[in-house]
């Protein structure tokens, strides 16, 4: 009896260790974000690896009925056209804003066959997607809204994304930026949203076009989009990692 117990315990520990090992070897660490020796960033990478390895990458983030839409605070930068707000001020944006964004165009460059500019009309030519989703802020609050926009996947395909592409960096006029991997870039709910709750994207929420990454925490969804750069190397676009923040935020 006693001997039996001993074996099952050992087997239990062995099973646990081998499954942890299997997790480590799931092949994700070829292109992991740098940690700069920080144990916290190592934990972030482990979470990234685990969520990519254990969760379905095709699953859609929860979508809500329209009746669940809530009020929506805008945090972070809320007007890059205002010179008084020095950290986010951008003169070019101020000019675009004065003309109600008629001259706005999104630049796409890097590992694409056809780099160039996409006007709002160009974006609208591609299929649109509408989704009622939850924005989950790292601070702890959340808000539900209806978003309409062009799936980033369609734009990347239209620009002829090259086989060496690995990451997509998105830069905003407000001096903010984020990069995402191709799994998130090609996720069906990752859209370039121009409409919020049935009206043009309000200024404080990133007019004229913002990113929505529904499988990650809110700060990945860059507002006031200006430029998209496709790269083969990892780019810490907003200095998330250097600034002491997690690059991957599935949780």
């Amino acid at each position: 009896m006693k001997k039996n117990q001993h074996i099952s315990r050992r087997r239990a520990i062995f099973t646990g260790l081998s499954s942890a090992g299997a997790l480590l070897l799931s092949g994700c660490f070829k292109k992991l974000p740098p940690t700069y020796g920080s144990i916290l960033r190592m934990g972030d990478d482990f979470t990234y690896m685990a969520q990519r390895g254990l969760l379905s990458q095709r699953a859609l983030a929860v979508e809500y009925p329209k009746s669940d839409i809530t009020s929506f605070p805008a945090t972070g930068n809320y007007n890059p056209g205002d010179p008084a707000l020095k950290a986010s001020y951008n003169k070019e944006y101020q000019q675009l804003q004065a003309n109600n964004f008629k001259d706005w165009a999104l630049t796409i460059e890097g590992s694409v066959a056809k780099p160039g500019k996409y006007t709002m009309a160009d974006l609208l030519k591609l299929s649109q997607r509408t989704q009622v989703t939850r924005h989950t802020c790292e601070e702890g609050w959340s808000a539900i809204a209806e978003w309409t926009g062009t799936p980033l996947a369609l734009l990347l395909q239209s620009a002829g994304i090259l086989p060496n592409a690995r990451f997509v960096s998105l830069y905003g006029y407000d001096n903010y930026a984020e990069s995402i991997d191709l799994l998130d870039a090609f996720h069906p709910q990752t859209i370039l949203a121009h409409t919020m709750n049935g009206q043009p994207l309000p200024l404080e929420h990133g007019a004229p076009v913002r990113l929505r990454v529904e499988t990650q925490i809110g700060y990945k969804s860059v507002k006031y989009l200006q430029r998209i750069v496709v790269t083969d190397k990892f780019v810490d676009a907003a200095d998330d990692i250097k600034g002491g923040w997690s690059w991957y935020n599935g949780i």
């Binding site: 809530t70 929506f72 609050w141 959340s142």
Partner: peptide, 8 residues
């Protein structure tokens, strides 16, 4: 509930 923030 499903969501909540400073405006709710």
């Amino acid at each position: 509930g499903q969501a909540g923030n400073d405006l709710t």
